[in-house]
Simulated scan of single mutants.
Amino acid sequence: MQPGQVQFEQEMVVEADISSLFVAASPRSAGEDQDHIQALVEVRVPLPPVLVHRPTMRVIDGVHRLRAAQLRGDEKISVTYFDGSESDAFVLAVESNVAHGLPLSMADRKRAAGRIITTHPQWSDRMIATSTGLSPGTVSEIRRRTAGDTLIEGSRIGQDGRVRPVNIAAGRELAGKLIQENPGLSLRQIARAARISPETARDVRNRLHRGEDLLPKPRVRAHPRPEAAAPATPTERERIEPPAVTSDGEAISRSRIAARVAAVDRLKSDPALRFSETGRTLLRLFIFTLTGAEWQAIIDGVPPHCKGMVTSLARECAGVWEEIAARMDHQAVAQR
């Protein structure tokens, strides 16, 4: 199983007896949120099915939906089944809670990462970071503190499913040896044998021809910056995300970014929005616009010949949001 890969048939929704399901081994240490359960009781639209580990009938995702159904007096609930192992079921539970619903706390995500490192030691730091909503650097630090990492000198599986050595220097040295001993081998054959990418194999070959070291020298930045890889959740992103940019080029203060993230988090926890298509569309727009975009990288990536058109469209988008805000204000006044 790899993070983000659906290991169950989402379309196979069936009705299960609520009495046959049980709750255990949740990644959420704080337990169930009674206010959220009560909010779900009041939702009038059908809620998404609960995800259940078929071998044990344990609820992987949807405990709050299950409790709401029990409070309503329902005897059955819609479920989809997962047939994988217990360890993979835990990963899926973490992924589900990171991707939607009430977000896991930072402490819960770190504990989950430690458990996944133990049960899936062959997964790369970036792969585990995708599942837990942490940065790869945080996962790497947890791995150093976690017992049971037997592959530190071996290889790991990346997000693309490829196996790569943990120590890239060893892969480059092996590739160099193969090239010298077997000059007729193709780059793809060398890459496969040394567990590196074909492009890395090409670089090794070129360095050999030029008489250079096989390992490139590390780049030194004049002004080191924090790790740029943004994690999946707004809470962690608040800590390391580069400042947003205003129309006059000045950095927006971190307090304003934190306020935006908190507001989006509150909206995400509202079932009236999360469980309707229009609500989810609105949340996606807010998440990307306010918390999910590395705007400076996007701005820098616009080709010079497109900048005028992009600037014009950006102002048009700002006008659209202004009109939306005006309409919302008008409705609020009319409903008083």
Results as ranks from 00 to 15, higher is better:
V63H: 01
L66P: 00
N167Y: 10
P242N: 13
P226A: 09
H100Q: 10
M127E: 15
E241D: 12
A326Y: 09
Q331A: 13
T200N: 13
D149L: 05
A24E: 12
L282C: 09
I298L: 15
A69I: 09
V41W: 04
A69Q: 03
M57N: 10
A191N: 04
I128P: 12
G249Y: 11
E250T: 15
D88K: 06
M106I: 09
V204L: 07
S87I: 04
S124F: 06
P242H: 12
E277A: 14
S26H: 05
V50H: 05
P304M: 03
S197G: 06
I257N: 12
H53K: 02
P46W: 04
C317R: 12
L215F: 08
V52S: 02
K307H: 04
H53C: 07
P242M: 12
I298P: 01
I142D: 07
I128R: 15
R219I: 06
D265A: 12
E181A: 14
I298N: 02
F22N: 12
V6I: 04
E11W: 10
A16Y: 05
D149S: 11
L151C: 10
V94P: 04
A113L: 01
E181V: 11
E212T: 11
F288R: 09
V52P: 03
V310W: 00
R54K: 05
H120K: 06
V6H: 00
P121Q: 07
S87D: 13
I37G: 03
K268V: 14
F8W: 04
E11I: 00
D270C: 06
A170C: 08
P218T: 03
S85H: 04
A222C: 10
R219W: 08
W123R: 14
E227S: 15
V91P: 01
T138P: 04
M1E: 01
A293C: 05
T278V: 13
A258H: 11
